Computed example of a mutant assay.
Amino acid sequence: MNLIRERGVAMKKKQTVTIYDVAREASVSMATVSRVVNHNHNVKPETEQKVLNVVKKLNYRPNDVARGLASKKTTTVGVIIPNVTNSYFAALARGIDDIAEMYQYNIILTNSDGDEKKEIKALNTLYSKQVDGIIFMGNDISDEVREELRNVRTPVVLAGSVDPKNEFPSVNIDYRKAIYAQFNKLFENGNDRIAFIADNLSRSINKDYRIRGYQDALKDAGVPFRKSLLIEATDVSYESGYKLQERLIKSGATAAIVSNDDVAAGIMNAMGDNRINVPEQFEVATSDNTQLTEMTRPTMSTITQPLYDIGAVSMRLLTKVMDNEEIENNNILLSFGLKKRESTKD
């Protein structure tokens, strides 16, 4: 018997239970044990139950590292998320996780704070763990991050993130058409000075998609473009939105389309605190349809995005890429809508 001594007390050395131990105890082959623990149902029910009983009795835990070396797969997917506390990205992550579980993948979630250096560090960490694929969430892909993604053959799918160069598969809504539709709704309510607000106007998702939708709508409505109504928030926080209230009133705007729900909530509450009634005197429409839109008073009208579905479809797309399946469409656009609540008139 192998013994170790700690502080003068004799202790049994912990023995690792192997697949061989389970097979011997259950009187089956190691291949049968492997099929059972990998949820391959090509095993007789009574044999499967016998193996599961032994697995439980011996407290057997499959060795994922060894299994990965044998199959050249780790059954692990890395997910890079800008902010784990943000309701938008959290909803996407839930969809990713559910589909990952369905396809028997584990998730390694890393928070990047939307910072390029942290994104690169996260990528390198995930590569070192030999993940089978990566889902990248972020508002933009810098040249450095793009280069990092190119240099490694690990499959990548973008979720709720645009790629104007179309190098990587992605799942989104049509942000350009969504902003166009929301502008027209506010315009029909009698507003011709409608502000567009986002945290970084130079990011591709804003510059190449949302702002273009905003400009398309202005042109078709015969309303002149006013640079003063294109407003950049300092970040995607409630506080940054609250601070924009005075600037919005000075700009002459009577309505605003906001790219982030937290920012929109800040604007709306600041209006109320300054005795400006929403929506009678100022209309607010937001873009993400997170739970926050129903928690505020008044509740917020919004572009509706199928957030869970964006995450779920992204993970399913990644499984296809990882398995070298044929993919009909690399850039999937899911349906969006407009949800009327109390922060707009009609």
Score class of each variant (00 low, 15 high):
1 M>F: 09
2 N>E: 14
5 R>W: 10
8 G>F: 06
8 G>E: 06
9 V>N: 09
12 K>E: 04
13 K>H: 12
14 K>L: 13
15 Q>R: 14
15 Q>P: 15
21 D>G: 07
23 A>I: 08
27 S>A: 15
31 A>M: 08
35 R>T: 03
36 V>T: 07
36 V>P: 03
37 V>K: 11
40 N>I: 02
41 H>W: 14
45 P>D: 10
45 P>G: 13
47 T>S: 08
48 E>G: 11
48 E>A: 11
49 Q>C: 08
49 Q>V: 06
51 V>M: 12
53 N>P: 13
61 R>V: 15
65 V>K: 12
65 V>H: 15
68 G>K: 10
69 L>S: 00
70 A>H: 14
71 S>P: 01
72 K>N: 13
73 K>Y: 01
74 T>F: 04
75 T>W: 15
77 V>F: 15
78 G>I: 09
79 V>C: 12
81 I>Y: 11
82 P>E: 02
83 N>E: 15
85 T>E: 03
89 F>D: 07
92 L>Y: 13
94 R>F: 06
97 D>P: 14
99 I>H: 09
99 I>P: 00
102 M>N: 11
104 Q>G: 13
105 Y>C: 08
106 N>D: 12
107 I>C: 15
108 I>H: 07
114 G>C: 02
114 G>M: 05
115 D>A: 03
116 E>T: 00
117 K>G: 00
118 K>R: 13
119 E>H: 04
120 I>Y: 00
121 K>G: 03
122 A>Q: 00
123 L>R: 04
123 L>Y: 05
123 L>P: 03
127 Y>Q: 00
130 Q>E: 05
133 G>D: 03
135 I>R: 02
136 F>S: 07
138 G>F: 01
140 D>K: 04
143 D>T: 01
145 V>M: 04
156 V>H: 01
164 P>S: 02
167 E>G: 05
168 F>L: 00
168 F>W: 01
171 V>P: 15
177 K>Q: 14
178 A>V: 02
179 I>V: 05
180 Y>L: 09
181 A>K: 10
183 F>Y: 07
184 N>F: 11
186 L>H: 02
194 I>E: 05
194 I>R: 08
196 F>L: 14
197 I>V: 11
198 A>R: 01
201 L>D: 06
201 L>T: 04
208 D>T: 00
211 I>C: 08
211 I>M: 13
212 R>I: 01
213 G>M: 01
214 Y>E: 01
216 D>E: 06
216 D>A: 06
218 L>Q: 06
223 V>E: 04
226 R>E: 14
226 R>W: 04
228 S>K: 07
228 S>N: 06
230 L>V: 05
233 A>Y: 04
235 D>W: 03
238 Y>F: 15
240 S>M: 07
244 L>G: 00
245 Q>G: 14
248 L>K: 07
249 I>R: 13
250 K>C: 13
250 K>M: 13
250 K>V: 06
259 S>D: 05
261 D>P: 01
264 A>F: 05
265 A>C: 07
266 G>Y: 12
276 I>M: 09
277 N>W: 11
282 F>Q: 05
283 E>M: 02
283 E>F: 02
285 A>V: 13
285 A>R: 06
285 A>K: 05
292 L>R: 12
298 P>E: 03
300 M>D: 07
303 I>P: 09
304 T>E: 15
308 Y>H: 13
310 I>M: 15
318 L>Y: 08
318 L>S: 05
318 L>W: 08
319 T>K: 14
321 V>M: 03
322 M>N: 06
327 I>D: 02
328 E>R: 10
338 L>W: 09
344 T>P: 00
345 K>A: 10
